[in-house]
Simulated assay, not measured.
Amino acid sequence: MLTQTISAFMTSHHKECDEQFAQAEESVANGDWTLGSKQWQAFSAELEKHFTREETILFPEFEEQTGMTGGPTQMMRMEHEQMRALVNEINTASENKDKDHFLALTETLMITMQQHNMKEEQILYPMTDQSLSNAVAIVDKMKRN
């Protein structure tokens, strides 16, 4: 049986979130608010699930085992808060069916997510794979949450 690395598991979840995001954005761009709102809510829930996995499971384990509490995980948490604020603004635009504002905000969120994910995928996740002796258990725990 192949064991899944933290990098592989979390990068795969980034891709799933990206696909949901693109579907919601496309539906709204096409004027289908019913489908777009439903897709947006599904994406938002999945994004929050991702952040929560990192903030409650992965980051604390990494910080505990490496002693690094003020470095990459602190930056990732700050970026999570920035993205949460954008999601809240996008929720308002969605509720108001303000297509132009929705699409402008989602463009900002997409750029922010791409930069954030690149840092995690190229720096933080490989660090966790190398540093955490219990990576398999961490992936299993994240799968359950």
Rank of each mutant, 00 (worst) to 15 (best):
A24T: 02
D129V: 13
M110L: 13
E121M: 10
I90W: 00
L47T: 02
F62S: 01
I123A: 10
F21C: 03
E81C: 07
D98L: 02
F62L: 07
E26I: 03
I138H: 03
F21I: 01
P126Q: 09
M76T: 12
R53A: 08
T106L: 01
T34N: 11
M68W: 05
S12W: 10
Y125S: 01
D32G: 00
A85D: 15
E19C: 06
K141T: 13
A42G: 04
L2Q: 13
L58P: 00
Y125H: 07
N117W: 00
T106R: 03
S131P: 04
I111R: 13
M118T: 14
A29E: 07
A135M: 04
T69S: 14
T106S: 06
K49P: 03
N96R: 12
L58C: 05
A135Q: 05
K38P: 01
A24I: 06
E54K: 08
Q122Y: 11
A29K: 09
R144M: 15
L58I: 12
P60S: 06
A8Y: 04
P60I: 10
E79L: 06
W40K: 00
Q4Y: 11
S131Q: 11
R144D: 15
E120S: 07
A8L: 07
M83Y: 05
T92A: 15
Q41P: 03
A137Y: 12
K141L: 12
Q82D: 13
F9A: 10
M68N: 09
A29G: 08
G71T: 07
Q65Y: 07
S12Y: 11
D98F: 01
F43H: 01
T34P: 03
T34V: 11
I90Q: 00
N30W: 03
K38M: 08
E55F: 08
M113A: 09
N88G: 13
P126M: 10
Q20N: 15
M76G: 06
M10D: 02
H116C: 11
T34C: 06
A104Q: 07
S37I: 04
Q39R: 05
S12M: 13
Y125Q: 02
L86E: 05
E79M: 11
V28N: 00
E79T: 09
A93C: 09
N30C: 08
